[in-house]
Design a protein around this nucleic acid. Structure first.
Lengths: 219, 219
DNA sequence: ATATTTTTTTAGATTAGTCTAAAATTTATT
DNA sequence: AATAAATTTTAGACTAATCTAAAAAAATAT
C-alpha cells in the first residue's frame, strides 16, 4: 500500500519533472512538500526501496515507470474532482485547489471511473490542465505559454499552470479569465515583460513571470 | 485541529451512545475501531484533554457537547456522500460504505453545504439513516426496528442500522429492499426470531439479530 | 587548484497512533 | 465477603513522518 504522504511526494516529483529532463533536486522537492531537505532524503530512500523512484544519493531523483503511473492516477483524481467542484457544485476556479488536494487521495478506482463518466469525460480541469485518462495518457491539448507568443499575435486564454489563490485572484482582477482573447502588443527586450490587450479592450502590463503561467491557444 | 483518527473515535463513540444511556466501555470502542483496548485508553485520555469526551478511568466514556457536535458533522458528511455515490454516480447501496468512510474526513464546510444543496437536502441516506442538518439536528423519521413490530402487523422497510456488505447482500438475496412491504406472520417466543412475508409473497424466517437491524415505518 | 558556499545526507530526537505483556481495578461467582 | 474472572490501564516498544544540528559531498568562486 502507498500512503497519503508518499502519493504527495510522487505527485510533486512528477510536476517538477515536467519542467526539465534532469534529475530533481532534494531541495526543490522540500520546497513543494513544505518539509525540510532531511525529511525528503528519508522519503526518497523509502520510495526508492519501493521502486517508485530511481535515486542515487547526492544525484537527485526521477520517477520510475511505476512511480509515474501512480503520480498520474493522483493527478487524474485531483483534476476530475476540480471539475466536479466547479461544474457541479458551483465553486469558483480559485477556490477548489485545497479541497482537491484532499479528495485526490480517496482510494477507489470504481469511484474515479464513475466520476469521470458523471462529468462527461472532461479533457481538462477548470485551470486548463489536461486530465490523464484511465490508462494515464495525457490528452495533447497543444497549449503554449503566453511568454512564448510573439508581438502582434492574438490568442485565446485556455488555462494557467500555477494555481495559488493569489495568482488566480490577480488574473480575475485584470480580467484574465478562461476564454478571453489576448493580443500581445509589445515585448520588452530587457526583462521579457509584456503589454497585452485583453478582450480587444483594456491594455495591461504583465511580467514575464505571470506570462509564463498563462496557457493560451493560437488560432 | 482534529485528526482523521480522532474523528473516527468520536463517530464510533457517538454510535455506541445511541444504543444506551450508559457510559461506553473501552472494549466496545476497541471492537469498532479495530484496535486494542490499550490503544483506546490512550486515545480517550487524549480526547478528554481536548474536552471532546468526559472520561474517568475504569468508568467508561461519553461525548461532551463539543465532541457530539464534531461526531455529528462527520456523520452528516458520511451520509451525504453516500447519497451522492448512490443517487449521482449509480453505486448500489451495499457498495458505498467503505468509500464514504474516506470521504467523511474531507475538511470543508463550504463543500458540505454545497453538496447538501446539490443533492436536494436529503433527509436520509441510502440505508435510511437520518442526515443531521448543518446545525447537527437529526430529522425525526419515526422509524422502528422490525424486532419491535407485533404479529400480523404490516410495515414498509425504510432502512437498516447495520451496513456491512455481508448483511446488505443477505437482505438483497431474500428480497428485503428499501420500500418493500413486510408482514410479520409469527414471532417465536423462545428466541424472538420471526416469520415474515415479503411483498405479500414469499415467506421467510429471520433471526432476532437480523430484525433488530431493519428499520421500518408503520402505516 | 584551492577555498568557500551551497546542497545533501546522517545522526539522533519527537509526535501520533498503535502494539504486547504485565499490573491494577471492577464485576461476577460462589 | 473472599476469590475468580473479566476488563481496563500502565509500561515500554515500534513505525511513519517529521525535525534540528552536524558532517559530507558537490558546485562555485577566486
Amino acid at each position: 500500500m502507498i500512503s497519503f504522504t508518499e502519493e504527495n511526494y510522487l505527485k510533486i516529483i512528477y510536476k517538477l519533472s515536467a519542467e526539465t529532463d534532469h534529475e530533481i533536486s532534494t531541495n526543490s522537492v522540500a520546497e513543494l512538500t513544505q518539509t525540510k531537505a532531511a525529511s525528503v532524503t528519508d522519503m526518497l530512500r523509502k520510495l526508492s526501496e519501493k521502486q517508485l523512484v530511481s535515486y542515487q544519493k547526492y544525484q537527485g531523483v526521477r520517477l520510475t515507470e511505476k512511480g509515474e503511473n501512480l503520480a498520474l492516477i493522483v493527478i487524474r483524481k485531483h483534476r476530475l474532482w476540480e471539475v466536479f467542484l466547479v461544474n457541479k457544485l458551483g465553486f469558483n476556479w480559485d477556490e477548489v485547489h485545497e479541497i482537491a488536494e484532499e479528495l485526490e487521495h480517496i482510494n477507489s478506482e470504481e469511484l474515479v471511473q464513475r466520476l469521470d463518466e458523471f462529468l462527461g469525460f472532461p479533457q481538462c480541469d477548470p485551470h486548463g490542465d489536461p486530465i490523464p485518462d484511465r490508462n494515464g495518457r495525457m490528452p495533447e491539448l497543444g497549449y503554449k505559454n503566453l511568454s512564448e507568443i510573439g508581438e502582434t499575435q492574438v490568442v485565446i486564454m485556455m488555462g494557467v499552470s500555477q494555481h495559488s489563490t493569489n495568482f488566480l485572484q490577480y488574473l480575475a482582477k485584470i480580467g484574465l479569465n478562461l476564454g478571453v482573447i489576448i493580443e500581445v502588443i509589445e515585448i520588452n527586450d530587457f526583462d521579457k515583460s509584456l503589454t497585452i490587450k485583453i478582450g480587444g479592450d483594456n491594455q495591461y502590463f504583465i511580467s514575464y513571470e505571470v506570462a509564463k503561467n498563462i496557457l493560451v491557444k493560437t488560432f
